[in-house]
């Protein structure tokens, strides 16, 4: 009896801690055909922090995000955003996929793509006014793409396209940003610009979750990490969760000595 009561209070405490959390994932399992690529992952992403999702290729990082967002249907598990279902918090969540699979010859200029981020604000018939134009331009300025605003979307390099999609997410003015490899294929200067944008979001109280591959910058960029390879391996503040053991487990000892040693990477 006593034990049961304790259980209940413990659960209560935990629930209260996670209730308002931007994203809580519980027991998420996703399989393509019959092979689970994400298995029973629990994770709580904390408000006002930048969290990195780390793991080797094929670890299911993208799949985890896509399942949380309902883009792929999970076999089991659920995601709650700000204590509610995704449908109830769409206005507060922005997502940038790893590779936008769009038709690059689509008749849209850079500004038009960024303006798509205002869709929920505008609705079916809302007029696209001066203030909306300003929001679009300021989002473009934040990623340093304002000079390209009138270009057709296909006439950009891969890294520039990536930045335009980030700008579209910024224009959404969300509270939670889910970014799948925002630094893939961008040059060093752009990477610095983007991390500056992410840190500015954090200063404004927003929450950022980003899939990331470069282990040497994890400690510099992120407050928290989630290390995974199909299963969750560790999560929490970088200092406690980003450990050599966790990386060894995740990468199956495929890392070189120097690469997998967080202490060295920090130096």
């Amino acid at each position: 009896m006593q034990a049961r009561l304790e259980d209940v209070t413990m659960r209560d405490v935990r629930e209260r801690a996670t209730r308002g959390s931007p994203l809580v994932i519980r027991g998420m399992t996703v399989a393509y055909d019959r092979k689970p690529v994400v298995f029973s992952v629990d994770a709580t992403f904390r408000s006002g922090r930048i969290t990195g999702i780390i793991g080797p290729n094929g670890a299911g990082k993208s799949t985890l995000l896509r399942a949380a967002l309902g883009i792929v249907k999970p076999l089991a598990g659920q995601a709650t955003f700000f204590g509610r279902t995704l449908a109830g918090s769409r206005d507060r969540v922005a997502y940038v996929p790893q590779r936008a699979s769009v038709d690059w010859d689509f008749p849209a200029r850079v500004v038009d793509v960024v303006a798509q981020g205002l869709y929920r604000r505008l609705g079916l018939l809302g007029r696209f006014g001066r203030d909306h134009e300003d929001m679009v331009m300021s989002a473009l300025e934040r990623v340093g793409m304002e000079d390209f605003s009138a270009r057709q979307i296909g006439q950009l390099s891969g890294g520039q396209q990536q930045r335009v999609f980030l700008a579209r997410a910024l224009a959404q003015d969300a509270t939670l940003y889910l970014l799948d490899e925002p630094f893939a294929g961008v040059d060093a200067a752009t990477e610095r610009a983007i991390i500056k944008v992410l840190k500015a979001l954090r200063s404004a109280g927003r929450t950022v979750v980003a899939v990331h591959h470069d282990l040497s910058t994890v400690e510099e960029y992120f407050d928290d990490v989630l290390v995974m390879n199909v299963r969750k391996i560790s999560d929490g503040p970088v200092g406690t969760a980003f450990t050599t053991e966790a990386l060894d487990t995740a990468y199956g000892g495929r890392l070189e000595r120097g690469m997998r040693d967080p202490q060295r990477a920090r130096a």
Binding site: I71, A100, V102, A108, Q116
Partner: peptide, 12 residues
Amino acid sequence: SFDPGFASTSGV
């Protein structure tokens, strides 16, 4: 037409 994935995360 442009980006079905984004459309659906925008609630379309």
